[in-house]
Nucleic acid binder design. Sequence first.
DNA 1: GCCCAAGTGATAACAGTTACCAAAACCGAA
DNA 2: TTCGGTTTTGGTAACTGTTATCACTTGGGC
Lengths: 142, 142
Amino acid sequence: MTVQGTQSGPRLRMTRQRKVILEEIRRVRNHPSADQVYLMVRKRLPHISLATVYRNLDILSAEGAILKLEMGGGQRRYDGETCAHHHVRCVRCGRIGDIPEDACPLPDMAGVEVEGFLLLTRQIEFTGLCRHCAASREAVAG
Amino acid sequence: MTVQGTQSGPRLRMTRQRKVILEEIRRVRNHPSADQVYLMVRKRLPHISLATVYRNLDILSAEGAILKLEMGGGQRRYDGETCAHHHVRCVRCGRIGDIPEDACPLPDMAGVEVEGFLLLTRQIEFTGLCRHCAASREAVAG
DNA sequence: GCCCAAGTGATAACAGTTACCAAAACCGAA
DNA sequence: TTCGGTTTTGGTAACTGTTATCACTTGGGC
């Protein structure tokens, strides 16, 4: 398992903590927050520090090993799935889901200049209602 | 000028503070943070409280009068332009720009159900380099 | 095994945002 | 126009998520 990215800089070591964090975040499909990763990892490394979790989530996302999502709702979330896909955020409960790339194809605009910006990446961010919230809303509002 | 949205709830009053906040945020094109709105508004209402600014930005976006942007970079930003358009965020300096809807057309997926989510809105979030950062990067990295 | 830069744990500090509450302002009704 | 009750405000404390700091530890090339 390698994590070293393409940036020049200090050599990364695969410490026990970093390895477990990466394994745990790749194991789940629910876009956990740093706090949730902390809880998951603590089951295997009970003495790990929250700071270590934050530090490594930061490093791993900078290396491209995981994705850092900033979709509002007060806290950042992380995604072990780095293949291209979009995200949807439930406006009620904040749950985040994956939308396959081919559900809404989008031209690759990398390198194009628009409105004075040289575009690099692009991603669609959907809002919506998850199954659970859609159901409970019908019960209330018809 | 009306702000009352479609949600049922307490009647909104158009206070002096709320009016100025809405005017100022609609006047500019640079997606200000709450802090920047505070500075703008204080030129006209020197005694306004930061809490009032936050409160009203929240209310106005809930009413649909402005947009609340959560694109990372540590702080929320607001947009007085509510017509459909996309956003690009400079990965270097955090500056946010508008990308016209027709620069990257996208089917309206509202009402469609994908992966257990009932989709509502969608927006493309680009990353890129603003003119200024692209220029300074060339100077360093060729 | 030795070395030392990279990483850790514990905790303080920090930034942005929200909660609280007494005083003030808005606005429909009288 | 004044009144009355509800909404809103200003000032500030509290809170939340995240980052910085630093002495100690550890991974991994030699």
